[in-house]
Design a binder for these strands. Structure first.
Length: 354
RNA sequence: GGGGAGGUUCCCGAGUGGUCAAAGGGGGCAGACUGUAAAUCUGUUGCUUCGGCUUCGAAGGUUCAAAUCCUUCUCUCCCCA
């Protein structure tokens, strides 16, 4: 995939850096692992430090010191996750800041402008993400607003400054109704944005529903554009997505569980705080080539977490991101060699996520 | 030597006659986490053959009933000399 700050090999996992930082790791480390595309978040950065600060720095890249690509989420997910503090109207969404309670409003146009100021290499349209369990009628309403907002965003994006080269991705919604997923896909594809995202997955549904709606929705997507499933980050979900033709995914999961003491291994998740690792002299994953696994034992890492030392979350975050990067490199290799399904089967046979 | 305060379940610390196996922290153990209001949150934490049993410095006593009241002992801390 070709982006303003360099090419990105796909399919790819993108670490999440909500506040202009992938939590607990330096940009240099993320860079060293091989990542060339990370996320930022419109909602968070707009509220703090605020656009004046980022504008003064000359955009998010310069402000944060990350020299590769940045995809920014639109704030659509916060419309969902911060639901108690928001009100959706045709014009946009009114919400209260989780930082100081102040009222703000996002419109599709304003969100494009913010992301233009951020200098996003990929920006997402403002959408309405919904949880499983809502009625068909409610799902229609959210889908329709999402489509109208996407159209407005596209129009505004086409009028960005000439020197702004960031791409715009539309987002498919439709909740967990096949007819609505199909309809949303059609309406979003019609806008002909440079890339397409599937939103509204991984929002509390069962793995079976995730799988069904992932494959169902993905079938409508064109093969000549980047396809992005938002919000997934476990190896099993990622393999499922790749099989469905998806090129990109992001998730807080790998970095969040790392901060809470859980790491990825080829045999599944491992909760380092568990008593059984007290004397375990092995690295997290014996076959892993990451700097953390070259230097530290499970026993020591467990100690860091029990002692609440900041180094624990840092090291495990680095390992988890390194693990996923290596994993995706292997996935790409298997695709090139035409043996992806075999790779997937072998990987999952060993990796049992608890 | 004189005066004062106090010893509570692994630790700190509430509790001053029954609603107390005993609040709340911490620690321990376990679980959760999927477009980040998350270095967060939740559960659990005397023993048990699930009928009960043992526990609040120790020993005696008062009472239908004591961690709580009385007596003695013991230990700790603070102040004065």
């Amino acid at each position: 995939m070709h982006l303003p700050h360099g090419d990105v090999e796909i399919p790819a996992f993108m670490p999440v850096g909500t506040n202009g930082t992938v939590k607990a790791v330096k940009h240099n480390s993320v860079d060293d692992m091989g990542y060339t595309l990370i996320l930022g978040n419109t909602y968070h950065l707009y509220l703090r430090p605020g656009m004046e600060v980022i504008k003064a720095a000359g955009g998010l890249h310069k402000f944060s010191g990350w020299k590769h690509n940045i995809l920014t989420d639109s704030g659509g997910f916060q419309v969902f996750s911060l639901a108690p503090f928001r009100k959706i109207r045709e014009e946009g969404v009114r919400f209260r800041s989780h930082v100081d309670g102040a009222y703000h409003e996002f419109t599709p146009e304003k969100v494009v402008e913010i992301q233009e100021t951020l200098g996003s290499d990929i920006q997402m349209v403002l959408d309405v993400c919904t949880a499983p369990g809502i009625s068909h009628k409610e799902a229609v309403k959210s889908l329709e607003i999402t489509s109208r907002w996407a159209k407005r965003a596209k129009t505004r994006w086409e009028n960005c400054r000439d020197d702004y080269q960031g791409k715009l991705f539309g987002i498919i919604q439709g909740n967990f109704y096949e007819d609505l997923r199909k309809r949303s896909a059609e309406e979003i594809l019609e806008l002909d944005t440079p890339g397409i995202a599937i939103g509204g997955l991984s929002v509390g549904e069962t793995p079976e529903m995730f799988r069904d709606f992932l494959h169902y929705t993905a079938q409508f997507l064109p093969e000549d554009k980047p396809r992005y499933v938002m919000g997934i980050g476990t190896p099993d979900y990622m393999l499922e997505a790749v099989e469905a033709g998806i090129d990109m995914f992001d998730c807080v999961y790998p970095t969040r569980i790392a901060r809470n003491g859980t790491c990825f291994t080829l045999d599944g998740n491992l909760a380092l705080k568990n008593e059984k690792f007290r004397l375990d002299q092995q690295p997290i994953e014996p076959t892993c080539t990451c700097p953390v696994c070259q230097q530290y034992s499970r026993s020591y890492l467990r100690h860091l977490f029990k002692a609440k030392e900041i180094l624990g979350p840092m090291l495990v975050t680095e390992h988890n991101l390194h693990f996923l990067h290596t994993f995706m490199a292997e996935v790409r290799q298997s695709l090139r060699e035409g043996r992806f399904l075999e790779y997937k089967k072998n990987f999952l046979d060993r990796f049992q996520k608890r």
